[in-house]
Design a protein around this nucleic acid. Structure first.
Lengths: 363, 363
DNA sequence: CTGAAAGCGCTTACAG
DNA sequence: CTGAAAGCGCTTACAG
């Protein structure tokens, strides 16, 4: 609401025009036009890949562009287009590994495109959350935004973006929107894979630690898990399901509660690796050996899965790959579709078996 | 070298001018000028906090600005200023937690300033590294850049930035440049703290696992450690120092090597938490109990320090705080100096004692 | 203290 | 297929 402080204009001391050595000014569209003997408008057409340029003319202009290493000024282009060449990543996610992997994936998909990535962490619970998003998108005239969970699951954000006409991609565990706005992670499949693995090991006393209700993935992972259990005739009691917060600490607390019960579960599926690591900690405190006394399975396959002892059996999610696909979808729908035809991209999770899971103890 | 593909112009289908509901166009400087009965130049003076505006005029204009929620278009302003309001973070750092904390800190320091953060991970070993940095900075006309380690330690980058006249802040463990370009982390102090803690526990057979030589922090942490040891009459032999790569896996490998020796070290100081976690893993494989048989001390105090067993005694570094200071220094030198006077910001590391360190075993 | 003119480097209409 | 004019929303010189 209150107007933000504005940046001061750049100070002009210490910086003689053009710097010390790299003083040769960069070419502009006017330079290229003059050099190629055409109007700037025709150069503009070449830049924007307009079909209405004679091949010969195009080639001449492209040669001059290449010779001078000309690249159009994104700021000027943006001003004229009324839209910047900036892509925003708006997120509220507690996991650094997820955030970094997602950023890397988006950058993978943007490489060589001339776009840049502007990061915008936020707090979905803040009373100014929506206003903040709106200000960010409108003021920067973002080309588009990518929304990972749980921001992706906020219908108010999607509605806002539609209203102000900003392109967006939602990354979520399930199809929440029109296909052109979605990259789907299919967390449900991952939950099912975890269930089958645990069942294959002979476990019957099984517990599930859910993520927070505010994340759709919590429900999907649980849903897939329960469904696959049901296929083999096993039903989880309400008491077999307890809720964590996707954090290590909540994993410890949930583990403490579960492992104090009689009878004790012989296998615990945690909604993510952080919580699974917490369960490992809890088992150690209880004097339990993993996997001899207890099987623990996580979800995500982030680094922590390999840093704990024993290394976690977990469900791998291709976060970076998903990011790449999101960026490509946002930037260039046509090219993406062609690519998908010949190289169908996978966003499905896969089971990774390590040492935290083993046969059910013989009673 | 080869010109990048250019973004396509925004497609005009599906998006009727002005969106669905938020269709009222945002006010421009012309609107404000007309409404306030002044020229746009005078509005511009108010925006840029020029002192050459009569108080009465200023107040009238500010009232109109507030009433209309006007905010100048950063793209247009940037085009006229020949400089954007974008701040770049250029980094090549393997630790997601560090990257995310640094980003959060930069954002803390930028909040309400009207600047935005553009992230630019890179590969310092790439043959096109310097050219990439140059292209990024020049094409986006960045207002300034922040360089965390190890990019901050690359003198070629600093030289380049000076040449093209781009403001920059280097974050490093030691003063590498003029004070106005530096935020210093004083890793040396942290190394000394680790040494004193280990000595206080009675250890004499001590080993050090260094980070990669390409990180200045590796040398500083080691230097502080050795100096504090020397103060108490202890000198590390060359064989007591081995080199890792700041990764979990390298920590395991170095731990394996160290723990196979006779006599075995009773305390290991690892250059960061990842490697310390690796040593823990290695100790477990060797059947050693921590801290009864072996003391392990890390550096950084990232989340992994608390997720492993036993939780790591480590040296806490205020990464996010350092990021905040870097952004503030870049954006507004004057305000920063005043703030530092009354609230001297600390960037020094501090010892955090947890359960991976204990008295030297009685022989 | 204030303003009219020109310009930043592009693109959008509009002609031809 | 190509171009001259006007404009995107600001700021920089330059006057007064």
């Amino acid at each position: 609401m209150n107007s933000p402080k504005l940046p001061s204009p750049p100070s002009s001391d210490h910086e003689p025009e053009g710097g010390l050595e790299g003083g040769r000014k960069r070419a502009t569209i006017n330079d290229i036009a003059r050099l190629a003997g055409v109007s700037k408008k025709t150069v503009s057409r070449v830049i924007n890949q307009s079909p209405f340029v004679r091949d010969e003319t195009r080639e001449r202009i492209e040669a001059v562009i290449a010779e001078w290493g000309y690249a159009p000024d994104p700021q000027a282009r943006g001003l004229a287009f009324r839209r910047s060449f900036l892509i925003g990543m708006i997120y509220d996610n507690p996991n650094p590994q997820y955030v970094v992997n997602m950023q890397l994936g988006l950058l993978d998909g943007m490489r060589g495109s001339g776009f840049e990535l502007v990061v915008h962490p936020c707090n979905r619970a803040s009373p100014t959350f929506l206003a903040d998003v709106r200000t960010f998108v409108e003021r920067q005239k973002l080309y588009g935004v990518v929304l990972p969970p749980s921001v992706s699951e906020d219908e108010r954000v999607a509605k806002l973006l539609n209203e102000i006409g900003c392109a967006y991609i939602r990354i979520a565990s399930v199809e929440l929107d029109k296909p052109e706005h979605m990259i789907v992670g299919h967390d449900r499949m991952g939950g099912a894979q975890a269930a089958r693995h645990i069942l294959d090991l002979g476990h019957r006393r099984i517990a599930f630690i859910s993520g927070p209700a505010t994340f759709r993935s919590s429900h999907e992972r649980r849903g897939g898990f329960e469904a696959a259990l049901a296929e083999r005739g096993l039903t989880l009691q309400p008491s077999d399901i307890i809720q964590g917060a996707y954090t290590f600490e909540s994993g410890v607390a949930c583990g403490d509660e579960l492992l104090a019960r009689t009878p004790r579960p012989t296998a615990i599926f945690a909604g993510n690796d952080e919580m699974a690591a917490g369960v490992l900690q809890s088992a150690r405190k209880a004097g339990l050996s993993v996997p001899a006394d207890l099987t623990v399975v996580g979800f995500d396959d982030f680094q922590i899965a390999q840093a704990v002892w024993p290394p976690l059996t977990t469900i791998h999610t291709p976060t970076r790959e998903i990011g790449r696909m999101a960026a490509e979808k946002l930037i260039d729908a046509e090219r993406r579709e062609r690519r998908e035809e010949r190289d169908p991209a996978r966003t499905e999770p896969t089971l990774v078996v390590r040492q935290s899971s083993g046969p059910a103890p013989v009673v």
